[in-house]
């Protein structure tokens, strides 16, 4: 099932339908008021996946690994991120629900397993636009650093490696598909990170630079740092535009985070400011010769922990604080 953004394609189908759903919908709303259930109804797609139409020819699929961007059109399907290896069957089924045309490109916005785990199987299910020796599957496009990251993984299938890459020092790399410019730029949060812009749709896939469900993963092992994270968010603010001057009418550029809901420039600013405040707070504590343990105990992320913190899972608050600490320590030594 595909949900739509309100205002973009609001379904005022028929009065009959409206009348049928009104009692149930208002009941749900009022139950939400009473606090007995969440009023936000999930709209599942295949398996536990959920599909949301973001723009006319742009969708996201969420629920396995990082959010997957789906651009569709007459040339076929372009995917940003391939999810986990285990999630590929559901992902492919969800993509088929959007478009019957073949997948032409898989673009990795980073090198993590939640992005590249499905590369091989998703690409194999696609069809390249080019003649042999490329193909027969879809092209896999990424920063050159992603290859280095994948090469570190024992048993990672070589047919999941990017077939085309760009270097982080390149200003940008672009191609034009489905009547739309698709632009990759290096996101300096970590070595393999890319922003992927869809210029006609006015959507940016922000990769791991921004996560609406947790603090960002600072990947120290692959060139990540808190300074790089902030630089990347500042870069993102250069390409995610607010709806000025008609701020009452539009949302501006949509930003798709690694996880969580679709965002826009407003949330990027909030996220950037949060990172700056946390960095400076921890740096101030380090200047006062506090140890990592003392800093963790002082809770330098208290203001944001209720929204983005976690004590369990693969990326806890303490892991984030430690990563910022070590990142600042490393920067000091340089």
């Amino acid at each position: 099932m595909t949900a739509k953004i309100p205002g973009e394609a609001v379904t005022q189908a028929t009065r009959a339908i409206v009348h049928r759903v009104v009692a149930v919908a208002l009941s749900v709303v009022m139950l939400g008021v009473l606090g007995t259930i969440s009023a936000r109804a999930a709209q599942p797609g295949n398996g536990d996946l959920e599909t949301l139409k973001v723009r006319q020819n742009f969708y996201i699929i969420a629920g396995d690994g990082d959010n997957v961007g789906v651009q569709v059109g007459r040339d076929g399907v372009v995917l940003v991120n391939a999810g986990t290896a285990a999630g590929v069957p559901d992902l492919l089924a969800a993509v088929k629900n959007i478009s019957p045309l073949p997948i032409r490109y898989v673009i990795d916005s980073g090198g993590g397993a939640a992005i590249t785990g499905g590369n091989a199987a998703v690409a194999a299910a696609g069809q390249t636009l080019f003649n042999p020796p490329k193909g027969p599957g879809a092209e896999i496009f990424a920063s050159a650093s992603v290859i280095e990251q994948l090469a570190e993984i024992d048993g990672y299938p070589s047919n999941g490696w990017p077939t085309d890459t760009y270097l982080p020092q390149e200003a940008l790399r672009s191609f034009y598909v489905n009547d739309e410019p698709v632009v990759l730029t290096h996101a300096p949060a970590a070595d393999g990170d890319s922003f992927v812009q869809f210029r006609r749709s006015d959507v940016v896939m922000a990769g791991e630079v921004m996560d609406m469900t947790r603090f960002p993963v600072i990947d120290l092992a692959h060139g990540g740092s808190i300074g790089g994270e902030i630089a990347a968010l500042n870069d993102l603010l250069q390409i995610a535009l607010p709806p000025s001057p008609f701020i009452y009418e539009y949302n501006g550029t949509y930003v798709i985070p690694a996880h969580g809901r679709v965002s826009d420039q407003w949330e990027v600013v909030d996220y950037r400011d949060m990172m700056v405040i946390i960095r400076d707070t921890i740096a101030d504590m380090m200047r006062r010769h506090m140890s990592l343990e003392q800093i963790e105990a002082a809770d330098p992320v208290k203001a944001y922990e209720g929204r983005f913190g976690s004590t369990t899972g693969p990326w806890t608050t303490n892991m984030f604080v430690a990563a910022v600490y070590h990142s600042l320590q490393a920067a000091k030594k340089k």
């Binding site: 309100p6 205002g7 009692a23 149930v24 208002l26 949509y254 809901r261 679709v262 407003w266």
Partner: peptide
């Protein structure tokens, strides 16, 4: 008109969503 809540993935626009 009893419309349903937006998806939890939907953006929060400046007008929010009210029923």
């Amino acid at each position: 008109d009893g419309r349903s809540q937006p998806s939890k993935l939907a953006p929060h626009d400046r007008a929010a969503f009210s029923t």
